[in-house]
């Protein structure tokens, strides 16, 4: 109760400060909450952007494809490098070096290569989501206690049963954490990609509103995006907590 009250107080204070600051600034560049709210209503009633659902679906589809690819590739490459030492020693450092490069530097070349359509956004979302998943798999494998693997062997487990019944559960916590981070970064990748240049998707609407100085619409669209992202992350966090309770 008190936590909620304190949180609400901060939100209220920020909204008030925003209202105050925006009223004294250039109305073209800043929109106070009193202006954003009606804009938000028009966005949600599909008045100002009748095609909003279609754009949201485009974005959702890009995220889904990019994330599915990031999960598959991240798990495959993570397990390959983690379970086969020679591979891990050969490619591990390359992976770490690539991860250290800010991913956004690759985006221009992705656009040149894949074009302005969905493919370049999927590629960028994939690129961002892939690394945390791969690295979580590698970290998770290192966390598996050798003792548990020995116990499994002594009780007659084959390498496959050891993998399924011991390794995967033992690394579940780290793995799920990596999958969650991967999802968050894929979402960022896709939306940033859309904002940087696209013809459809929620990012293209944001870019459009902002380019035309329709600041209130721009803020309203950002709020819609924010709510959707927070909701998807909350869902992921729920799954993560399940896994945490189960594996700890």
């Amino acid at each position: 109760m008190t936590v909620a009250a304190i949180r609400l107080a901060l939100v209220l204070a920020l909204v008030l400060a925003w209202e105050g600051a925006a009223r004294f600034s250039n109305p073209l560049l800043s929109a106070p909450p009193s202006v954003v709210l009606p804009a938000l209503v028009r966005v949600l009633t599909l008045d100002s952007y009748p095609e909003l659902p279609r754009h949201l679906l485009v974005t959702a589809r890009e995220i889904a494809i990019a994330y599915a690819m990031a999960v598959l590739a991240g798990l495959a490459i993570g397990f390959a490098l983690g379970l086969y030492r020679t591979l891990g020693r050969a490619y591990g450092p390359i992976l770490a070096a690539l991860y250290a490069v800010p991913a956004v530097v690759w985006y221009p070349s992705l656009m040149l290569f894949f074009g302005l359509d969905s493919s370049s956004k999927i590629a960028f979302g994939f690129l961002l989501g892939f690394f945390p998943i791969t690295l979580a798999v590698l970290a998770g494998i290192r966390q598996v206690s050798p003792q548990l693997v020995t116990v499994a062997r002594a009780f007659g487990a084959t390498p496959l049963t050891t993998f399924v019944k011991v390794m995967v559960p033992a690394m579940m916590f780290t793995l799920v954490g990596g999958l969650r981070t991967g999802l968050a970064l894929t979402v960022i990748g896709v939306i940033v990609g859309e904002i940087l240049g696209s013809r459809q998707g929620i990012g293209s609407l944001i870019n459009h509103a902002y380019g035309l100085l329709r600041t209130a619409d721009y803020v309203a669209l950002v709020l819609v995006t924010l709510v959707l992202i927070v909701a998807s992350d909350a869902l992921a966090s729920l799954v993560e907590h399940r896994a945490q309770r189960w594996s700890e």
Partner: peptide, 19 residues
């Protein structure tokens, strides 16, 4: 190789599966 139909082992570290 391990033969759990003949031999069972208890280790110093109990090695229980925490999940």
């Amino acid at each position: 190789g391990p033969d759990p139909t003949r031999v069972a082992t208890v280790f110093q570290d109990p090695g229980l599966f925490p999940w």
